[in-house]
């Protein structure tokens, strides 16, 4: 198969590292060659963060550039728009409709572009937008948004739920496993 590329984007601190590690472990177990590129340091302080996951028979580059991405999984609405140019023709964006104001909006220097997803849809983008925050909070924490989104994304891959469950067990500390399972289930069954 050709190499598939996934981008996990959001706001620093939302838990994209765990999501990319879960996906990476799952795909490795499936026998794919996998590259995951993470973000650490300065940009984790509430900045825009992007993590790349690429898999296939042989993967060289750990990063994804314009027009190369098969799936963008966005933890926040504005961030989906920011990276939309990376989506290849026929790709798909899965996005949590939560709005988190960036500093220029907080200070009043800019406005939050609330209609941004509609604009992208009008351009022909395939967008699955839904509220991942409420089911995350119902599962136990706003931090579980990452697993709700992973559950939603699971439908895009031809990998069984049991294998996802096994990957979760390997990736997530036991203390948080139950909450994350619930969040994943909420995302999975909602699709």
């Amino acid at each position: 198969m050709s190499v598939k590329s996934v981008m996990i984007v959001g706001v620093g601190g939302q838990g994209s590292l765990l999501a990319s590690r879960l996906l990476g472990n799952l795909l490795t177990e499936e026998g794919y060659d996998v590259k995951v590129s993470e973000v650490h340091g300065m940009s984790q302080r509430g900045g825009s963060v992007v993590t790349y996951v690429r898999f296939g028979e042989k993967v060289y580059s750990p990063i994804v550039t314009e027009g190369e991405c098969d799936y963008i999984i966005s933890f926040e609405k504005l961030e989906a728009a920011r990276y939309a140019g990376c989506l290849r023709r026929g790709g798909k964006i899965i996005v949590n409709t939560q709005e988190i104001d960036p500093m220029p909006v907080i200070t009043g220097a800019a406005e939050y572009p609330t209609d941004v997803l509609e604009d992208l849809k009008a351009q022909g983008f395939c967008i699955d937008d839904f509220d991942a925050l409420t089911p995350a909070e119902e599962a136990g924490s706003a931090k579980a948004v990452n697993l709700v989104l992973m559950g939603r994304f699971a439908a895009c891959l031809n990998i069984s739920k049991e294998k996802w469950a096994a990957a979760m067990e390997r990736t997530i500390p036991p203390k948080y496993l139950e909450m994350n399972r619930k969040a994943f289930e909420a995302g999975y069954s909602g699709t």
């Binding site: 706001v11 027009g67 939309a84």
Partner: peptide, 19 residues
């Protein structure tokens, strides 16, 4: 060259900030 679905709109920057 890769074919992009479309172009990203201009959106406000999101620089890192104090928590």
């Amino acid at each position: 060259l890769p074919h992009a679905q479309g172009t990203a709109p201009q959106v406000p920057a999101r620089p890192p900030m104090m928590c």
